[in-house]
Write a protein that binds this DNA or RNA. Structure first.
Length: 562
RNA sequence: GCGCCUGUAGCUCAGUCGGAUAGAGCACUCGCCUUCUAAGCGAGUUGUCGCUGGUUCGAUUCCAGCCAGGCGCGCCA
């Protein structure tokens, strides 16, 4: 079997047909042929296994009626010897669509391909060799992770898995804002709580502050006696360590792993920031004004120039952004993905401007994903998200209520640019409204069938598989869906849209359930085992593999029993 | 004012190299377990794809303008 999938093979054959048509004068030589042919899966099964509108697209430049173009392509495909045994029929429909129907045995090769590739089935090379830095969450270490962070935890982690599967070399990074006056405020709030004093103005509230303060005092009773400056610093550092450890621990239980926890403070160690500043100066976009040091980001589409070093000598947050960008690039990453909340979308232009100021190509080196904030409904009312008010749903609480699988799946299955409403009551009720159960059930169901097959002594697997037996419409439908997985994965990776995986696997589960309802897999009663039983069991095995692979990309378990 | 996102069925939402009759779940009605997991399957009902124009063989999809909602525009972090 060739390296090419059947879709690819058909696409290449059509391109060959087009080239031959130019050769023979059936198409004017002035017509520019497409680089690749896209084959769609028609919604209507009467339209074959794949369809293409290439004839429609070429009709105009060729100055020919679309049907004539389609007829010529059809003629060449039917004469193509390499498609014997692959393509069963080529039909022309509507204004000039070409509908292709595959030969059964050829279509069923996908089953063997899946079993052969196993966990790797679907993985591809569209991002081969690309070194990607994927930064997400990057919450302040001044409190627990809330639901907004949780969306990024789920989506970011799934995106990391997806990009890796597409061939990219991915490093997941969490940026710790461990510098600046928010940290000092955090320290002052903890100290106040420990001393039983009122929370400072704009300080941090919430029960966790009191809890942290209590823990710190238990470990370091001497902190209570320190003066304000020393005490604030001591509580800040101790609170930071505890809070960061808490975030790290809860993320691990959420199956979200980071390769690097990057400290903002570290950007100012070992003269690194000055090194970055020098690099930016070399590019000529740094200037002084009013005693401050600026980056002229307006050279590259930003609304206004940005201060890096304030006139009082302090580093503005933008200084960190700039240095952090350069750090990532110097560590060898080609593509930097930033996942930001909608309230930070104003940063897109300035981030891209940093890249341009550093002499890079913002369109290639920076990829910013903007996620709309999550709203939470409980008891029919919206809960406002406010880290400081203390009325937050944390990642831990969400997991406690609905479990890791349901939480991750629900958060991933919507495009991030869609504002999302999570109904806590609904998720807590564990009804079937959550499609994760639907998908997991399909997997568990298949596993049950395969267990029974083994008990009955039915052999299944690539070695006994007879592809020509799978002629039932439901079987063909199922194999068609399975064959879509690699292409879907590549597309989702390129678009950075993990939600497509969830949508795909839901459809696959639906197709499997239909197959299951119409096609008996195992022998009934005393019926003797046949090759068809084996073939169907093998198809089930391949389906379970793809469902498991898809759920694996989402970080959701594929249970063998439910 | 400028910028970004959103507007699709009663509700929650899918649908981006433009494609054939616009989909799913929930909800509602009715069927299917004396054999593989009924957490399932099947049938039925629901639409000015925000509005108006443009591009073309074809627009929910691309472009422009408008309407509505959300968010952002600091020598804060």
């Amino acid at each position: 079997m060739s390296e090419l999938s059947i879709q690819d093979e058909l696409g290449v054959s059509i391109l060959r047909a087009l080239a031959a048509m130019v050769e023979s004068g059936e198409l004017p030589s002035a017509v520019t042929l497409p680089d690749a042919i896209t084959l769609d899966r028609p919604k209507n099964r009467d339209h074959g296994d794949y369809s293409t509108s290439v004839a429609l697209a070429l009709a105009k430049p060729a100055g020919l009626p679309p049907r004539n173009v389609a007829l010529a392509i059809q003629k060449h495909l039917e004469a193509d010897a390499s498609l014997k045994g692959v393509l069963k029929a080529v039909e022309i429909a509507g204004p000039g669509f070409l509908n292709l129907t595959l030969d059964t045995a050829s279509q069923a090769e996908i089953v063997a391909a899946i079993l052969s590739a196993g966990e790797k089935f679907g993985h591809g090379k569209v991002l081969d060799g690309v070194s990607i830095n994927l930064e997400f969450i990057s919450a302040n270490p001044t409190g627990p992770l809330h639901l907004g962070h949780t969306r990024w935890a789920a989506v970011g982690d799934a995106l990391g898995r997806l990009l890796s599967a597409a061939g990219a070399k991915v490093t997941r990074e969490f940026y710790i804002n461990d510098r600046g006056n928010q940290m000092d405020l955090f320290g002052a709030s903890l100290r106040a709580a420990a001393l039983g004093q009122p929370t400072p103005e704009n300080g941090y509230h919430g029960g966790y502050i009191q809890d942290l303060a209590t823990d710190i005092v238990a470990q370091h009773p001497e902190y209570v006696g320190l003066d304000e400056a020393a005490g604030t610093a001591a509580f800040r550092d101790a609170g930071y360590a505890l809070q960061l450890a808490q975030q790290q621990s809860v993320l691990e239980t959420f199956r979200t792993h980071f390769d690097i926890w990057f400290s903002e403070k570290s950007l100012y160690e070992n003269n690194f920031f000055n090194h970055c500043l020098d690099r930016l100066k070399e590019q000529g976009h740094v200037f002084m004004d009013g005693g401050a040091t600026w980056l002229r980001t307006t050279d590259f589409g930003d609304d206004k120039d940005r201060v890096m070093i304030k006139s009082d000598g302090a580093h503005a947050y933008f200084a960190s952004d700039s240095a952090y960008y350069i750090s990532k690039r110097e560590r060898g990453f080609d593509v930097l993905i930033y996942m930001l909340g909608a309230d930070h979308h104003g940063y897109v232009n300035r981030l891209k401007a940093i890249a341009a100021c550093a002499g890079d190509d913002p369109e290639y080196n920076i990829d910013v994903l903007i996620g709309q904030l999550v709203k939470i409904m409980e008891g029919g009312e919206e809960i406002k998200l406010s880290k400081r008010a203390g009325t937050i749903i944390t990642l831990e609480e969400l997991v406690e209520k609905v479990g890791v699988d349901a939480a991750r799946y629900t958060l991933i299955r919507y495009p991030v640019e869609t504002p999302m409403v999570m109904d806590v009551d609904l998720l807590r009720s564990r009804t079937n409204e959550n499609p994760v159960y639907y998908v997991q059930y399909a997997h568990a169901r298949i596993c049950a069938v395969l267990r029974n097959a083994a008990d009955l002594g039915i052999a299944y697997g690539a070695s006994v598989f007879k592809p020509e037996l799978l002629v039932h419409e439901r079987e063909r439908e199922l194999m068609g869906s399975l064959a879509e997985f690699p292409r879907m994965l590549a597309h989702a990776a390129q678009l950075r849209e993990p939600h497509r995986i969830a949508r795909y696997v839901e459809e696959l589960a639906a197709v499997y359930h239909r197959f299951y309802a119409d096609c008996r897999v195992l022998p009934m009663g005393d019926e003797p085992a046949s090759d068809l039983h084996s073939a169907r069991a093998t198809l089930c095995q391949a389906t379970a593999q793809v469902v498991a692979n898809a759920l694996g990309l989402l970080g959701v378990e594929a249970p063998e029993k439910m």
